[in-house]
């Protein structure tokens, strides 16, 4: 007998017992799944150290503030984008986007290449196992019920028995998720788009 592959999809016509079996397997996987832990403190400390050295070096060579800020933004953007893609740390994506917005504000990068880069990173998020691990970890911790699960739950009565594990028929997924790609793109692209729009809007209103 072949062991249940918890990453496989449940058949649409699966029996309740089969669905429950998949759900339990998935729950076990999620419970034991290791989160892609990134020591954010270490990342941020390293970034800060590099930025301090870089800023000091550039200021010492009489560079303008724009020239000082640009490499700083690039360092932050690249580092935090990698953390976002590889370790699925949401806030890193927003910070990477904010750094990209800094480049737009300084007029050191145009929007389209940045959006292209965001799209490429978002596609990488679509495949990245780190995201799947976080999702699997999250799945057993809190997830709303589907209508079918609710219907199954509705047939249960309050009794003396307790279930320690609330098996909720966790939906099985492969690593790839298109909705994750779109969401990641929005996160990465929002800040530079917002900055570009704001600059355009201010210019437009003052030019009228």
């Amino acid at each position: 007998m072949t062991a249940v592959n918890p990453m496989a999809a449940t058949r649409a016509d699966a029996s309740p017992a089969e669905a429950a079996s998949f759900a339990e397997a998935r729950a076990r996987l999620a419970t034991t799944a290791d989160l892609p832990r990134v020591r954010m403190r270490r990342v941020l400390t390293t970034c800060a150290a590099v930025l301090v050295v870089q800023t000091a070096a550039l200021l010492a060579t009489d560079r303008s503030w724009d020239e000082v800020l640009v490499p700083g933004y690039v360092i932050l953007m690249v580092t935090l984008a990698l953390v976002f893609v590889l370790a699925a740390v949401t806030v890193a994506g927003f910070a990477a986007g904010a750094a990209a917005a800094g480049l737009v504000v300084l007029d050191q990068a145009s929007l389209l290449p940045l959006l292209g880069g965001a799209a490429a990173l978002a596609l990488a998020c679509g495949f990245a196992p780190g995201w799947a691990r976080v999702e699997a970890w999250q799945a057993t911790r809190s997830r709303s019920l589907t209508a079918e699960e609710e219907a199954a739950l509705a047939q249960r009565a309050l009794s003396g028995d307790r279930s320690r594990l609330w098996t909720r028929g966790v939906r099985l997924r492969t690593y790839w998720r298109a909705d994750r790609v779109l969401a990641a793109f929005l996160v990465l692209a929002f800040h530079p788009s917002m900055a570009a729009f704001s600059l355009w809007f201010i210019g437009w209103t003052s030019a009228r």
């Binding site: 739950l153 509705a154 249960r156 009565a157 309050l158 009794s159 307790r162 279930s163 609330w166």
Partner: peptide
């Protein structure tokens, strides 16, 4: 009753 049935 249904909603609280699974409270551990």
């Amino acid at each position: 009753m249904r909603n609280l049935a699974d409270l551990d």
